[in-house]
Simulated assay, not measured.
Amino acid sequence: MSLREVEFTSSNQRDTVYGWIYEPVRPARGIVQLIHGLGEHSRRYLPLITALLDAGFVVAADDHAGHGKTAMTSGIWADAGDHADRVVVVDERTLRSITRELHPDLPYVIFGHSWGSMIARGLVSGDSEQVDGLILCGIAAGIHGIENLLDRQALSAEADTEAPAPEAYVASMFDGFIARYEPGSGPTAWVARDPDVVRDHAVDPLNNFGAPMSVRFLAGFVDLYDAANADEWYPSVRGDLPVLILAGDADPVTGFGEGAYRVANQLVRTGHGDVRTRVYTGFRHEVHNEPEISGDVAREIIDFASRCVARPT
Rank of each mutant, 00 (worst) to 15 (best):
V198C: 05
D231I: 02
H285C: 08
D226K: 07
S117V: 05
L123Q: 15
G295Y: 03
G145Y: 00
S42Q: 14
R93G: 15
G248N: 06
A28T: 06
R93P: 14
G66P: 05
T16P: 07
G66I: 07
D196R: 14
F111Q: 12
D91M: 04
V297E: 13
D62Q: 10
E40I: 09
I98G: 06
N207S: 12
G37Q: 00
A179M: 07
V131C: 11
E232L: 13
V170Y: 09
G248A: 08
E167T: 09
D82A: 08
F217P: 00
S114P: 08
H64Q: 10
F177H: 12
H285P: 05
D204T: 06
S214H: 12
V32A: 05
R121P: 13
G81N: 02
D175E: 10
R262Q: 11
S185T: 14
D251M: 06
A165G: 03
R269Q: 11
G282L: 09
S172E: 04
I143W: 05
V89R: 02
A157H: 09
T94A: 06
P252F: 07
Q153K: 13
E300K: 09
M173Q: 07
V87A: 01
E129S: 12
A260W: 01
S306G: 15
V32I: 14
A140W: 00
P195N: 01
V58D: 00
G257Q: 03
I143V: 05
L218A: 08
A51D: 09
V89D: 08
P187T: 13
